[in-house]
Design a protein around this nucleic acid. Sequence first.
DNA 1: TTATAGTCAATACA
DNA 2: TGTATTGACTATAA
Length: 697
Amino acid sequence: MKNNPRQQCKSSPIPKENRRLGNLVHQISDGREMMMFSSRDRDIQRLEEEVQRLQRLLQEVQERTANHIALLQQQLANKSQDIERLQDELQSQQDYEKIKTELRTLRALTQTADDPPVVSVCSPPSDVSSVSVDNDHVIQRELHHFLGKEEPLSESCPDISGLPVENRRSPSPSSSPSSSSVSLHMFIKAEKDSDGDISCAVESDGFMDEDEREFDTARIAQQVKEALQQQNIGQRVFGHYVLGLSQGTVSDILARPKPWRKLTSRGREPFLRMKRFLSDEHSIQTLRIIQERLRVLELHEADLCVCLVAEGIVPWVRPPEMSSDEVIRNILDQSRLELMDVDSRSLRGGDASEDVIRNILHQAEHEMQLHSHVTNETARDTVKPEEVDYGTLNPRVQSPTDFVQSIIRKVKCEIDEDTHPSASPASLSSVNRSLRALPVDSGLRTQADFQLVCVESCEDESPSGLDLQSLELDTGSITQRVKEALTLNNIGQRVFGEEVLGLTQSSVSELLSHPKPWTKLSLKGKENFIRMHRWLQDPHNVQRLTKIDQRARLKRDSQRTFDGHGFCPGDHSGAFEAVKRPRVVLSAHEKDALRAAYQLEPYPSQYTIERLASQLGLQTNTVSNWFYNYRSRIRRDGLTEPLQTRTVQSPASTSPVSSSLVPIKREPSDPEMEDDTQRHARVSVAVQAVTSVKTEL
DNA sequence: TTATAGTCAATACA
DNA sequence: TGTATTGACTATAA
């Protein structure tokens, strides 16, 4: 039987002590509980704070997300608008092929009816400013078409017919006002007339009134810049159609407008035109349309060359005024020349693949004639597609680009089928020879030609390796060898330049005397050295040139005899020279002054240039050209000063800046040959001009 | 848009 | 007469 503890406590003095201990234990446990509670309270509080913080965070995140979503929605809306706008534009431009055809037809018409075209197919000019007046008429008609005007601009508009001849057909795009800009003005004005806004007779009077006022040229320039930027109109187009100036000039005028008072009446004209342009929203929109149309046409025609490259055939670069059809026709023309060449060679044993090409090209030519016929007779469609089967070469169902691609594909296909081992290289070179058929100085030789030259060079050396990237020539050695060969065989730079490089004598001289290192040459610059390299490798090089040289001499001699009898057919040089601008020849002191200025400021600001020009009595263009050329020749010679004007130390000199600037050679163009004092005075004037500008700044 | 490379024609020079 | 220089310009690269 177990003892009851309580009973034991009551029955002894120990239980009292136990009770006290028990109380103590109880108190301790209570304390612990209290601590635990307070700790939990703190935890709860902390958690509550954490919850609040997280709630705040959540709220912030929600707000931010909402904002972001709103922003994205806005952007999406904007993009959608853009897409819609672009789709609309695309839609509105879908008829450009048709318009282009119309444009071409009209151009042909105007050329037939008017003088011969100003721009020939092979002429090199590449800027819009060279577009003939005839094209302006076409553009005007085109604009009528775009603007939904049924009536074309009357050719006998009293304003146009009443204009002075020089305004109707400006001899130079840079002369003012150009016929193009006049045409546009007439057009815009005629447009206005039709809306009943302005009378036709106000034009000239308006100009007179404006001329008497004073304009803030900087503000006009700024506004024009903004307008062009907003409407995405290029300076080239603006310059051509509105100002009758080149892009470079427009850029210059807009970047550095001269104060109105400093402008001559001629210099003010662009600003007057700009002012009128700005005040006429209609003309701005018209120009925007012209710009867009030109871009579309350029894109389309650039496409052709891309296709040719894609097909493995190196195209020559088309002058901008040449249409895609003309490009095709040109290819065919060149091919015909090739075939004539083939004909002569076939007598000595022909190449089967060339016959294949000949057939294809004949067919292509036939297609082109048909294409041309169909294009002109689109409405009537006199030839039904099913009447003739042309396989894949049907221009009526293909764009010009696709058409050319088809020809190329077919040629390649035929070549591949030809089992003749030499077919491919021969065929490729046959096509490539078309490039060589072009005159070297026609301005058509570009990167494509460079590649051809490279390929041919590499073929000469290592038929398998056509690594154009790693091609590197020793320009110094090449020029040295060429010089030796020319001297040894008494061949002139003129003949060498014309026959081998397609350059003038002066350019040959410069190339031979100052060859740039290969790495510093541009693609075009390298081309010359590759040609020289090839010439050096040609075993018959000297023989060929000697013959040509002899023929040229004979021709010159006979010409001289002819001239001696007082008759020279087609010689208008006298009349031509009468209108030529004389070459500017800077005198010694002017050069000294410019060199001194260069020492202080190799890249002078426009303001400095103007100051220098004014101090020296020169045109600003002359000063600015001098700096360009001087910097260029310093770079070329790799010296502190160009070779031809290198100077020596002159102990007698006293001028602080020009003391070392005494030319080695005498300046024959300096008649009075000033003494040192006068020259130093001139130089110090220039130096002062530069330093005073610096101080002002 | 600007700076530079390449080129030409006129001119100078040997 | 052939070559070198140079002012001016265009095309192109940056």
